[in-house]
Nucleic acid binder design. Structure first.
Lengths: 88, 88
DNA sequence: CAGCATCCCTAAGGATACTG
DNA sequence: CAGTATCCTTAGGGATGCTG
């Protein structure tokens, strides 16, 4: 039992917005990146309460939806930067 | 163990918006009420996949934050209507 | 009709350790 | 430094039945 998983309802536009930028840390991540905090270590420092793993996951979702762009520099130690795809 | 519950971060304004209108059905409820679907039974009919209990809970939260106003008519059988507090 | 009480499940999120 | 793997917790949400 309990096999029924009610699908999300996207009949209302706001729900789609929530799908894209909803999540415990996503709004804050968007905000931080917009303010020029680009590197994962800096982002983690700005959100000391969030675990690295979750920040990573949420950044990945933002990237998947095209909200942010991820730039990987082929250097050692690794360097990554996230950029907003939107100019405000 | 696992006593640590990381509190929600409201340092970013969007997070506050999510607190108010976030939730699986809240955006759709706001939309429906705005469109004139006011009575719980009608709302339930419009969202056949959602359970009465959850719709009730989410309406209560919307009411608590002042997003909708609840009007109870002292009649039998009971009659209730929800109104948007915002005119668009 | 509207709402609550009860019970229960799932998935988002959290802790930790490890890799290149 | 950045990311992944593993395991675990918890609160949001779902099913059902009862009340006035």
């Amino acid at each position: 039992m309990y096999e029924k998983k009610i699908p999300k309802d996207f009949s209302c536009g706001i729900s789609i917005t929530f799908e894209i930028i909803g999540g415990k840390w996503k709004p804050c991540l968007i905000d931080s990146i917009n303010k020029g905090i680009r590197r994962p270590s800096e982002i983690a420092k700005k959100h000391p309460l969030a675990s690295k793993r979750v920040l990573s996951l949420q950044l990945k979702e933002l990237e998947a939806y095209g909200v942010v762009k991820k730039v990987i520099y082929p250097v050692l130690p690794p360097k990554v930067e996230y950029f907003s795809t939107t100019s405000i």
